[in-house]
Structures are given as structure tokens and as C-alpha cells.
Design a protein around this nucleic acid. Structure first.
Lengths: 197, 197
DNA sequence: AATTATAGTGAACAAAAGGTCACTTGTCAA
DNA sequence: TTGACAAGTGACCTTTTGTTCACTATAATT
């Protein structure tokens, strides 16, 4: 009689939704993966949709924690090398933390069905990363590390190729190492192009 | 008693799959959207999976036609302005031709379920565009329009931001105009950065 | 004109889906 | 010790799902 069953259901749902999508997920299997029977689920959630909405609530809240409070520890790199390694640290995190990977997959699968998923997808895949790099690059320009340019445009040009390769890792996990090397190469190329020597 | 029912089923399936995904699509609705009853479908396809596989066959064949035969009319721009307008023409096509949009959506939704969809997704979203721009940029470097650099890297840096905004249009069609303006701005910025004045 | 293949219908079916409910069991408070 | 409550079970219900099949009507073939 675990008290954390409600939480475990949410995590199992994230797992199944990220693999089979909302429609492809069935409650029996979900319950079985937790070692209980389907009716047990309904002691914690009213319906399948309720699980879904709770999961989305969670994802939105989590996203707000990490990216929402913008100035939430924003270490400005003090060298181009620092900028590079900071990028790679972030990339490795985003690629290897299971929960983040699953979140991206779920948003990918449900973006056309659920409006909140749609909005969160845009943040995750586009505006979030871009805004973050926008602030960083802007500071780096002030510091003279990056040549003066439109920081938003540079951030977009930096974030989206990286995002594309992160998506590739989600789709083809067996090619993760290749993708990471490509991100490294891209980052270095970006620094050569826009960095101040 | 239309002879082209088989074809119409495929197009209706593309439409529904792109909206609701494979699992979310049901045969009754699919049949109804064509003005016939569900059992009629089975006169043309053995099963739902058969429809899906036929659709994938079609998408793969179509992709091969457009991108596969690489040198299939590859007009090399003879000015930077030409490169820009060529980009925008391609973008407008890819964003506004319904069938292409639906194909992207289907691949997005089924990329984790079906291996062929997965492979095609990578081509559509990443390698296809990149290879194409790689060839173009390589020629432009030879012509002295673009500064000498790694053409593959430049192509990647050019294709993926555009691809990200195409995805945005699929997700948020109401923001299509904004996205197109952003692509224009990005393309111009790219040309300023790498173009030879 | 007779026949045959093709396209489509409607009823029926088995399996799987989400969900409900009466019931048991273990935990904690009074 | 007792009572209340939360957590979990198993049987059951309804709907929806993909699929089949006997049958009809039309178009093409002999």
C-alpha cells in the first residue's frame, strides 16, 4: 500500500505515452507495469484523460521551474571555450536524462491533439532554448566575446541546429554519439564564425 | 463505383493519420469521410496496417522522386539574391502544399512506432534538406558567391533553422506568416554572414 | 444475352478498450 | 478494540475497435 502510487502512475504514464502515444496507451498495461490491476488506477485518477492532464500540469510546472524563472542562475560564460563546454553540458543533460527525453517525445506525439502540449512543444523545441541562448549571447556581446550582431538572430541560428540533433537522438538513440560529435563540430564552427578572436 | 477509390482511401488515410495518428484513426470514420461504409474499405485493403504500409510505400516513393534523384534539376543560384528567392520558393511550397504538410505530420507522429517512418522522418527533417543545400552551397562557393567553408556544415546551419520554423508552421498554422518572415530574416542574415559581397 | 469480376452494403462478431462497483485488506486515529 | 478510511482486487458493463461474410448491384467480358 504505497503512498506514492499516484506518483508512480504518473511516471509510468509518461513512459508509456512517450513510447506509444496517448491513444496507443491502455490502462490495463499501464497498471500491470506497476504491478497492479486497472481498477486500482481509478483510486488515484478519475480517468485516462485525468492522468494525461495531471502529467501535463506536471510538465508545465517543471518547465516553468527550469526555464520560466529566466534569471534562474544564468551563468554567463567568460570565454568562448567556456561557452562551448557549457553548451555541451546542457546538451548532454537534455539528451541523457530519461525524463526529459520522454517529455520531448510525449510533446512530439501529442502536439497536434492537445493545445497545452502544442504550446509547451514550441517552448521546448524552439523559443525556450532560443531565448536562453539569446540572453547568454547578448551578455557575451557586451563582454566582447562575440561580435556585435542581433542576439536573437544568433541565438536562433545557434539553438535550432542543436535542437534538430537532439531530436535526432530521440528518434535514433543508436546514433547519439554521432549526433553529439556533430553538435560539437557545429558549436565550434559557430564560435569560429561569430566569436571574437 | 469509382475506380479510384483505392487512391481516395489512401489520401483520406493520410489526412486522418496526420491529424489523429495511426492509433487514433478508426476505419469507420475513414470510410465515412469517403461516403462509404467501413466494410467497403476491405475490398481495397486487407487491413488497417495494410493501408498504413501502402501509404508509407507511397511516401517513400514520392520522396525518392523529389529528393532521391539528386541531380534532378538542381538549379544553382547565380546570385545571392537568387539564392534567397529560391529558398523562399522552396519554403512556401513545403509549407503550403497540403500533402507535404500532412506527410510531415504523419512522420512526426509515427516516427517512434514504425522503422520506415523513422528513417523517412530523418530524411525529411534533417538529411534531405541538408544534403540539398550542401550541393547548392558547394556550387556557390565554386562560383565565389559564398565564402569558402565546409559546405556540409554551412548547409546544416542553413537547413535546420528553416526546418525548425517549418515545424512551427505545422504546429501553429495561425503563425505561418510570422514564421515565413522569420525565415526571410534568417536567410538574409545567413547571406550577410557567409555571402561574398 | 449470359456470365463474371468488381465495388459496395449491412448485419454480425470477437477482442480490446475505458470505466464502475461491491468487496477485502491493511493502517492509523479515537 | 474499534471504527474509519485509503489502497487494491476481481467481476462486470458498455462502447468501440478491426474484421468477416453473405448478399446486391453495376460494369466489363465472353
Amino acid at each position: 500500500m504505497a503512498k506514492d502510487t499516484k506518483e508512480r502512475i504518473l511516471m509510468a504514464a509518461l513512459d508509456m505515452f512517450s513510447k506509444k502515444g496517448y491513444e496507443g496507451t491502455n490502462i490495463r498495461e499501464l497498471a500491470a507495469s506497476l504491478g497492479l490491476v486497472k481498477s486500482g488506477i481509478y483510486k488515484h485518477y478519475e480517468s485516462k484523460k485525468d492522468i494525461w492532464n495531471s502529467l501535463l500540469d506536471r510538465m508545465i510546472a517543471y518547465y516553468g521551474e527550469r526555464f520560466g524563472s529566466v534569471e534562474h542562475i544564468l551563468p554567463v560564460p567568460d570565454s568562448l571555450e567556456d561557452f562551448f563546454s557549457m553548451t555541451m553540458r546542457m546538451v548532454n543533460l537534455t539528451i541523457h536524462v530519461e525524463q526529459i527525453v520522454k517529455t520531448r517525445k510525449v510533446l512530439t506525439l501529442e502536439q497536434y491533439q492537445d493545445e497545452r502540449a502544442r504550446d509547451l512543444a514550441t517552448k521546448h523545441f524552439l523559443t525556450g532554448l532560443t531565448e536562453m541562448f539569446g540572453r547568454i549571447l547578448s551578455r557575451m556581446m557586451e563582454k566582447g566575446l562575440i561580435s556585435r550582431d542581433d542576439p536573437e538572430m544568433l541565438a536562433f541560428a545557434y539553438a535550432t541546429p542543436i535542437s534538430a540533433l537532439i531530436h535526432l537522438c530521440d528518434r535514433e538513440p543508436e546514433n547519439t554519439e554521432d549526433a553529439i560529435r556533430k553538435i560539437e563540430a557545429f558549436s565550434r564552427h559557430f564560435i569560429v564564425t561569430y566569436g571574437v578572436k
